[in-house]
């Protein structure tokens, strides 16, 4: 009965939404703030990838907020799961798993760093690269669950990377009186060393996201263990 009511309600809502939506400019929305960014983004920020320009320059505050949210989630997970000594119950991986993880680790590391450093040129950036970095550190843990990751080190990297992001922002505040304004030369559009401080910010984001996600996944894995 309850399900039927829900089906009817959701169906009605869906019909209403579809009718409403198809009166909107689908596929040709007004381009107001975006148009200006497309126009001047390359010159003002110097990043070929305009999404990264938006992410780290125009809306850098959002990115800082988002880093904080991930940090808050990781901290809260630590609080919720507590710091009890748990014995990881997962068995050690077999030879194939261990050898595979050993092989994958350097590859993932390089790909992750590449994606982070080329964030201002090609699709990718701090977040995407950070996730790959997290995977690089998490795959060996999957193969050898008992070894785990050093949470102290992770929280250190996490904290310092976040502080570095804000530090670059504050540097701009003191140098140019505007928080997070890109500094340094803009360089040649499309070159690796271009777009001023953007690659540095990207690096900070990547390290922070990588450390946080790796920490999150490891905490969740450890939470499955039996209490000693």
């Amino acid at each position: 009965m309850r399900n039927l009511a829900a089906v009817l309600f959701i169906g009605g809502l869906g019909f209403f939404l579809f009718v409403l939506f198809f009166r909107l400019p689908l596929g040709a929305p007004p381009l107001v703030a975006g148009a200006a960014i497309l126009e001047e983004g390359g010159e003002t920020v110097g990043a070929a990838n305009l999404v990264t320009a938006v992410l780290l320059a125009y809306r850098g505050m959002d990115t800082l907020g988002e880093l904080s949210i991930l940090f808050a989630a990781a901290t809260a997970v630590g609080l919720v799961l507590g710091r009890r000594q748990l014995v990881v119950s997962d068995p050690e991986g077999g030879f194939i798993l261990r050898a595979g993880s050993d092989l994958l680790f350097p590859l993932l590391l390089v790909v992750g760093l590449y994606v982070i450093l080329h964030g201002h040129l090609t699709p990718g950036g701090g977040f995407q690269g950070g996730v790959i970095l997290a995977a690089a550190f998490f795959v060996p843990v999957l193969a050898r669950p008992r070894r785990g990751l050093d949470h102290g080190l992770l929280s250190f990297v996490e904290g310092l990377a976040g502080a570095a992001f804000i530090g670059i922002g504050l540097w701009a505040l003191f140098a140019r009186d505007a928080f997070l304004e890109p500094l340094l030369g803009k360089g040649v559009l499309g070159h690796l060393f271009s777009a001023g401080t953007l690659p540095l910010l990207s690096m900070a984001v990547g390290l922070k996201v990588g450390a946080e996600l790796a920490g999150l996944m490891t905490s969740l894995m450890e939470a499955e263990g039996r209490e000693s």
């Binding site: 310092l160 976040g162 502080a163 804000i166 922002g169 928080f179």
Partner: peptide
């Protein structure tokens, strides 16, 4: 007044609290 500071400083402190607590 740098209006940004009341937002950014607590964030900075939050990031640094846990590494600092180890020292």
């Amino acid at each position: 007044l740098p209006l940004i500071l009341p937002v950014v400083l607590p964030l900075l402190a939050a990031f640094l609290v846990m590494p600092l607590a180890r020292m």
